[in-house]
Every structure is written in structure tokens, then in C-alpha cells.
Amino acid sequence: MNTTQKLLNGKFSLEMKVYGSGEPLLYLHGAGGLMPAEPFLEDLGKHFKVYAPQFPGYGESTGNEYIDDIADAVLFFHELMDELGIPTANIVGHSMGGMLAAEVAAFDIHRARKLVLIAPAGFWIDEVPIPDLFAAQLTEIAGLLFHDPKSAAAQMMTAIPSDFKALETMYVERVKRLATASKFLWPIPDRGLKKRAYRIHAPTLLLWGDDDKLIPPAYAKEFTSRIKNSKLELIKNAGHMVMYEQQEALVGAIRKFLKG
């Protein structure tokens, strides 16, 4: 279900997907943002009450101009959790959202009951450079993000509309989203999480596609070595967009970890 959530007297107006019922789960999306339909989140909604906001600057969500850096983004999520009445919740984040979820948990150890980071950004290893998604062309993106770039999911996500108006709309939305992401990821996605990750006290599960070509699984040890109570699980036959390639395995792993 799509809802609109206002924060701070309308400073932020958020487009948010809400699914299911039960224990609260806050989902932080990656640099690409939420798609019109998110079957993976619907599936999670069978077990949790899922809150998935579009970050300010994405979709209909406004207030992007009030967020310049990690501290602003973290306080935004703290405010959102308070406003939703879930000051503590399970937090799941993918890619850029994983980076932000880790920061939310590190800035205030009481925010995350448990933390799930799916192929999170936040580090840079010279020997394993992350390909430049900002410079990638639409035709290259499927190859970077998917284990199987020919799959229906990959093709759908990277399809180029033939109608000019639709193309312009898609292009403008993509520019808006990636421009917002550039505040945290440009030119190198390291904003100092390495100094703060030790403050993550919540039990943490790292999930990674074994064929992630964007942020390779080698990055997992940056997290597991710094977060006391953490472990890594690889998801087979998945690239960076794990949720679109191995939805069942991913939901299963999250559910087992959060319910366990």
C-alpha cells in the first residue's frame, strides 16, 4: 500500500510503501530507489510490518535540499522512526540503503533491534574498485547489477522506453535519484563508516549475492571485522540486485535471522 508520510511540519513529504503487520521492519532502498512494484517487500510483509520510504529526492518524496550528508540522513531516519512510533525496529538496507542503515544503527545503538545489510556500500578497497555506476550507460547497467543480465527482471529494470515522453520522464527521474545518491556515494562511497561501525551493537546479518559485480562480496569483511555480532551469508546465483534474482532465498534468510 502506498502512503504519504509528513515529517517536521511538512519539511519532508514521503512516498512510502507499507505492507503487512507484525514486528516493524524499516527498509532502506539502494541508489536506484523503489520500483512501482516491489514483490520482495510484499513477501516480507507476510511476516513483518514493512515500512519502505522513498528517500527525499526519490519519486514523490520531497525535502532533499535539507539533507547534505550522512549526519543529516541519519537524523532524518531517526525522526521518521519516532514519527512512525517505531523508535526501535528491525532495519534492512540494500546497497546505499545498507550504508545508511549501518550509520543509523551506529549513531544510536538503540535504533536497530536487528540489522540486515544486503550488499551494502560504505567502503572502498583499492584492490577491489567498485565500477562507476554514475558513468555507466543504460546498456551497461544490467551487466553490472545482475548475475543474469538476460533475465526478465534485468531486462525490465533496464528497458529503454521507445516513446519520447516516457523516455524523458524516466531520464529525469533517474537523474533526480542518482543526483541524490551522489551526496553519499560520489566520487567514492566512503563517508567515514569505518570510524563508526564499531558502534553497531545490534546483531547484524550481511547478505551478499555471490556474483555481485558492482560491490563484490570481498567488501563483506570490512563489515564483519568491525561489527562485533555479525555474520555473512552468500546468496547463490545472484548479483547486486539480490531481491530481483533470488527473492525466495533472500526473504528466507532475512526471516530466519530476524525471527531467530
Binding site: 558513468a135 555507466a136 537523474v175 535519484r177 542518482l178
Partner: peptide
């Protein structure tokens, strides 16, 4: 290279 011509956000909407 086209990918370098116009970083997302460089030109305003």
C-alpha cells in the same frame, strides 16, 4: 564517452 558527458545532477532538471 557518453557516461562522462553529464553526471546525474550536473544539469538541472
Amino acid at each position: 564517452y557518453d557516461g562522462f558527458a553529464d553526471a546525474p545532477g550536473y544539469r538541472t532538471v
